[in-house]
Amino acid sequence: MPIAAIEALIEVLGQSQVATVAETIDLVETQSAKLQCAVTNSIALSHGTHLFRQYLVMSLKQPGPEGKETSTQKNFDIVRQHLLRNGRLFAQRAKNARERIAVNGRRHIHDGETILTYGGSRVVGTLLGRAAEKHDFGHFVDDPIRFKVIYAIDPALETESNKVIAALRAKGVPVATIPATAVSYAMSKVDMVIVGADAVTANGGIIARLGTFQIAQLAKENKKQFVVAAEQHKFGKTFPCGQFDYGFDQGVIDFRAGSTSTSYNKIPKETLAKPIDYTKPDYVNMFIADHKVLTPSEVAKEVIDMLL
């Protein structure tokens, strides 16, 4: 979603007739706001648009060709063209991020380990898939890593999970599927938990599929590594104070009384299509991002450097 938003913004910028720096920023902001209004859970989206806005400000601040200010008309046009070209590159780079995370993550998975994962993250899928492949660095060749995977299944995400599981099994990785209720039971067999995230918060926590937080708590309780694989464009300045501070209501907790029906509130009904929860940085051991591997406090530092 963040990348789609960034691409949309670049498209708008290409079509528009803005002539000044202020107009450009203004346009990006109004369009971002429109995008955010269109979805209930706009956290990941806002991270993407905010990053792009910040990127624009940075580029526009820089002196144009011949070291002149961008505020002059001629220079602005040149910078704008440059920006559009680079903007596409920016989006392309974001798309390639998954592969680079796989390269960064590979050295953190070792022979004989058992990895537990949850949800349908494509980042994690790619990371595990590449780790099971032979990797040719040019000057030397890395053999496939022999590891096992325990996949905790969320019924709501079965299709996504099944894709990843099928791909891994095809590569010869032994995969066991367990219901999310069996995570605690299986935890002693696990060496490391790797999950993806919807968004990474300003303090180095994550916002991810509902259920991630409890797995993080179980991992910490069992002293297992809890690793998050997330691209840099998911970093943002959201800072939830607790589970209910997202700015929108998920409707997960729904009190009822007096009804004769025994049907319990199945989560997807009357709730957000993809409910989320927030995992505090205390529970995360490591982030594998596309540019490097970081600790939660390093993430916090990057967010401040990048976005404030």
Partner: peptide, 22 residues
């Protein structure tokens, strides 16, 4: 302490030195 709210935004309390550098 969990969150530190300054005029620059809401950050983790341990990020105070980063704000200072910023």
């Amino acid at each position: 302490l969990n969150a530190l709210i300054t005029e620059l935004g809401c950050v983790a309390s341990k990020s105070a030195p980063i704000l200072l550098r910023k």
